[in-house]
Simulated scan of single mutants.
Amino acid sequence: MENLKSIFIPKASDDNPYQNQLIANLGKFNIQVVRENNNFLFLSTVISNWKPDIVHLHWLEPLFLVPSENSIKSFIKAVIFIIQIIILRILGIKIVWTVHNLKNHENINLFLDWICSISVIKFSNAIITHCQVAKEEVIEKFSVKNKDKIFVVPHGNYIDCYENKIEKVVARAALGFNDSDIVFLFLGLIRPYKGLSELIDTFKELDSEKTQLVIAGKIYKDSLEMKNLLAQKLANAQNIKLIPGFVPNNQIQLYMNACDVVVFPYRDILTSGAVLLAMSFGKACIAPRKGCIGEVLDDAGAFLYEIDDENGLMKTMKLALEKHANLSTMGQHNRQLAEKYNWRYIAEITNDIYRSCL
């Protein structure tokens, strides 16, 4: 099999196993991957690693949005981004884009976001989505005419990516919970689109002494607005434990093994690696039937609701309480589902896509 070189742009955080797992398994198919640190002039990395066969784009927003939300600076950055994409095509380098999101989560400069996405679609040789629903959404939103260049590659699991040695009773004792408590978990970066505010309001209405809600994660960009909102909603709140700050990799097992069910109260979503994380730890889930979630989860392992149902989250949380005796079995079912999304399988499909572009 011929050796290939691919450049991943942008580089994900080292704490996120997604790229690490994909890179390690692509190596089994004679594909060398370089990860790009410079989100602005990534063409310099392409030149310094001459000549790559593939430039594989992942999250686009770091490549054209500026942290200050300055529209003029973002516009200039976007123009430079598109010029670099065009140069890649002129140089004969193949472009692959994995569509993790249809737009940036903070809804900043959405028209600019759309222009950059349209440009990548136009000049890319292949587009990857994580499920059939996402493929259809990409086709509809961006009016893609050449549907044959869109491929479905599932999101890989996180089995064995994190330590998982803590017993449930030990994890609960560490967090101050009783064995009889029913524990809901919200884990990860706290951002508006994830719907934490709605989750807190809904949990308060459950009015059950045996229920607990754990919120563990860092507030995105240390948003003062979000800090004040949480402080207001959690004032005098019963049975809600907020553990703010970044969750180290070795602590994920603590929260996952202490809980009964993981809640994903998203306002909008296309693909969720966090759902695969919960499934990999063998946890039941509550989530909207939106994007890839409805393809990855099923009713045997999750309580799913329609995202436009205002009472959907409340109904599913109440159902989880009613069926709390089944939560462990549901989690085991999810673990079995997650096992089929192993990274060698993901890399094999990606390898086939790469080589079809050449």
Rank of each mutant, 00 (worst) to 15 (best):
L63I: 11
D14V: 14
T350E: 05
P244S: 10
I95Y: 01
I127M: 01
S13W: 01
W50Y: 14
K340P: 06
Q232L: 11
K73H: 08
N101Q: 04
Y354H: 06
K141W: 00
L91S: 14
K28W: 02
V170H: 12
C292T: 06
Y266R: 03
A258D: 09
I243K: 10
I86K: 03
T271V: 15
I139V: 15
I219D: 09
V66S: 11
N178Y: 04
A231Q: 14
H105K: 05
I215L: 11
I47P: 07
L270P: 08
L26C: 01
A274H: 02
I93A: 10
D352Q: 10
K227P: 04
F151Y: 12
K204Q: 14
A300P: 03
E339M: 12
N311P: 01
V66M: 02
K149E: 03
G245F: 10
F142Y: 09
I346Q: 06
C292I: 06
D298H: 06
N25L: 07
Y220T: 03
A274M: 06
L337P: 00
N239T: 04
V133W: 05
K315I: 05
I219Y: 02
F29Q: 00
V96E: 02
G245I: 10
I93D: 02
V34F: 08
L224Q: 15
Q251V: 03
I293H: 02
R344M: 13
V99S: 05
E322I: 13
M226A: 05
L224C: 08
A325N: 09
G156R: 09
I90Y: 09
L102T: 07
F64E: 01
V46T: 00
L88A: 03
L175A: 12
W343K: 06
N107C: 04
L327G: 06
I85V: 15
L4H: 03
K73N: 14
Y345T: 04
M279G: 11
Q32I: 11
L22V: 12
S124E: 02
I252S: 09
N178G: 10
Q212T: 04
E36F: 01
D113T: 13
I349Y: 10
G294A: 09
F203N: 01
I190K: 05
D309E: 13
D14E: 15
L112C: 13
D260H: 03
E348A: 07
N334S: 12
K165G: 11
Y220D: 14
Q132P: 05
I240T: 12
T329N: 15
L337E: 12
G312H: 05
I349R: 07
G245D: 13
A258C: 12
K323Q: 14
N49G: 00
V133R: 01
I31G: 07
L327A: 00
A237D: 05
E306I: 10
K149M: 09
C285T: 14
F186C: 08
V55M: 08
I9K: 00
A258E: 07
L196R: 02
W114K: 15
L110C: 08
L321E: 07
N16A: 08
A274R: 00
I93Y: 05
N334A: 09
L230F: 01
I240N: 08
L63P: 04
N334C: 12
